[in-house]
Design a protein around this nucleic acid. Sequence first.
DNA 1: CATATAATATATAAAAATATATAATGATTG
DNA 2: CAATCATTATATATTTTTATATATTATATG
Lengths: 104, 104
Amino acid sequence: MSVTIDLATMHQSAEAASRLMRVLANADRLMLLCQLTQHELCVSELEEMLDIRQPTLSQQLTVLREEGLVTTRREGKKIYYQIAPGPALAVMQVLYQQFCGAEA
Amino acid sequence: MSVTIDLATMHQSAEAASRLMRVLANADRLMLLCQLTQHELCVSELEEMLDIRQPTLSQQLTVLREEGLVTTRREGKKIYYQIAPGPALAVMQVLYQQFCGAEA
DNA sequence: CATATAATATATAAAAATATATAATGATTG
DNA sequence: CAATCATTATATATTTTTATATATTATATG
C-alpha cells in the first residue's frame, strides 16, 4: 500500500496517458469521436455532419485508426468507423460531462 | 431532449476540451499534476521528485498556471504549487484509473 | 547597505512535431 | 471505364519542446 510510485513506472504511465491526450488534443478529432460514441458512421456522413474537408478528415481518421481509438468496416464503397473500447471512451465520457453540460 | 447538437455549440465545446487535452498532452505536465493531486509542492521538490531540468520544469509549470490548472503561493524563496479545481481534476482521476492501475 | 546565494522565472533560438491545403492515387461499383 | 468514396503524397505553415543563457525575487551575512 505504498503511496510513492516508482519513477520509471510513473513515467511509462505518463507517456501512455499523454499519448492519448495528444490524440484528443484536436477539436476535429474530438468531434469525430463524440459522434462515433453514439453510433458508427461512414466518412462521407462525418464529413457532412462536421463540415471538415475531406482530406483533413481522412488524415484525422488515420490518426484515430493508428492509435487504435477506432476500427473500421467496409461496406461497398463506404467505410464505416466505430469507436473502439478502451481508455479513450472513459475520457470522452468525462469530457462530455464537463464540457457539454452535465444533465445530472 | 434533442439528440442532435448544434454544430457551432459542439465546436465551441470541442475547442475548450481540446485545449485542456493539449495541456495534458505531455508526460512531464501529467506527472506534475499527478504529484500535485496528492498535496501542494514547491518547485524544487517537484524538480527532485521528477528529475526534470529546472528551466523545463518552470516552463511547464508556467503552462499549467496560464491555463488555470494550478495556483501558487509564495513562502519566502519558495513557491508552492497546488492543483486548482475544475475539469482537469476529473480527467486526471480517469487517467489515473486507466493508466496507473485501478485498485478496484 | 552591499553583496552573495538560493529558488524560480523568462528570453531566445534551434529542433521536432502537428496541421492543412492542393494535388494525385486507390478501391469499388455500375 | 466513368463515377463515387476514401486515402496518400507533397509542400508549407504553425505549434510545441527544450537547451542555454540571463533575469528576478527573497533571504542571509559581513
